[in-house]
Design a protein around this nucleic acid. Structure first.
Ligand SMILES: [Mn+2]
Ligand SMILES: [Mn+2]
Ligand SMILES: [Zn+2]
Ligand SMILES: [Zn+2]
Lengths: 165, 165
DNA sequence: TCCATGAATTGGACATTGTCCAATTCATGA
DNA sequence: TCATGAATTGGACAATGTCCAATTCATGGA
């Protein structure tokens, strides 16, 4: 049988509050959502939630491994609920779009660095940088676009995620 | 024959200003340096440099591919002059230390994502997360430390870099 | 060597993202 | 239902970076 969200929270030693449940749903509602958008989505659901409440909830959930935080250069942190599947990200240098991509190497072997310098590695975070199909189609070019320029173009598009493997 | 820094700048269409040269040296002076530390190092060298001047120089250099920007979660952006060698990073979840690590796969094949979704990929950015030898030796543990906690422990240690391959 | 010109820098206001803290409210087990 | 510690709130604050208009500078050509 599958756990309710509230039960999941309690199993991780967290109280099941309306704020946390709303944050959890907000993160599930959209791939790679920002804290700001989480706040907006959650506010619609439960009427009001403080900025600090959003950050506290996100941090608590990240710490328990219930959600994952990624932080593309030039973008605020983004959160997703695809977790423990060792997937990576494609980021468009031009429009900032972020899409999921499965690990090239397999389930987890990309965890193996050539020389781990004595580190105990538990996660390999991979971001592939390049140009998305749309930007290519429109002939838009940009070498190593700086964060400011990316931001001026507006928030990165949210791109539909393929069904997780 | 090898180019002087000033010549290198001009070859990339940039005027050779005192600020840019100082920023270039600052980035070379320390692996994974922050903009703030760049400003401090450069100020010592040339007397004074504006905050905007530092950011303008860093962005111009990144755009030309003369330096690289990385941004570990929970840390301000960091800059390095090891460029075009497809190297990756080990980051300690506990103390935030960042060290270089050569690509596990070879010179560039980690550029090949399993499914590129039509992206033209030009860079694969890999961060290995884990626990550094010191933190392990001291028995310090931390599961998915949040950025705030990492910041409270002070700036990440700077760790000596092995000679680039 | 000097000048004209566009490139680069400066200072200061401002934006964004996130944290700190003390007071209050809430969820949970007894 | 209550006591208790966990969680939330609001508001100040911190860190990182950008915008903009005025000024200064680097460079190629006279
Ligand atoms: Mn993802
Ligand atoms: Mn490096
Ligand atoms: Zn694009
Ligand atoms: Zn460490």
């Amino acid at each position: 049988m599958t756990l309710t969200p509230a039960e999941t929270l309690r199993r991780h030693g967290l109280q099941a509050t309306a704020q946390r449940l709303a944050v959890l749903r907000a993160v599930a509602s959209q791939p790679h959502i920002t804290a700001d958008d989480v706040a907006a989505v959650a506010a619609v659901e439960i009427g009001t939630i403080s900025r600090q409440g959003v950050y506290d909830a996100l941090n608590a959930l990240v710490q328990r491994g219930l959600i994952r935080r990624i932080q593309p250069v030039g973008s605020p942190a983004r959160y997703e609920d695809r977790v423990n599947d060792n997937h990576h990200h494609l980021v468009c240098r031009i429009c900032g779009a972020v899409v999921d991509v499965d690990c090239a190497v397999g389930s987890a072997p990309c965890l193996t660095a050539k020389d781990d310098r004595g580190y105990e590695i538990d996660e390999a975070e991979v971001a592939y940088w390049g140009r998305c199909p749309e930007c290519a189609a429109q002939g838009r070019t940009s070498s190593r676009l700086d964060p400011a320029a990316r931001r001026r173009r507006g928030a990165p598009r949210v791109v539909a995620t393929p069904t997780p493997s």
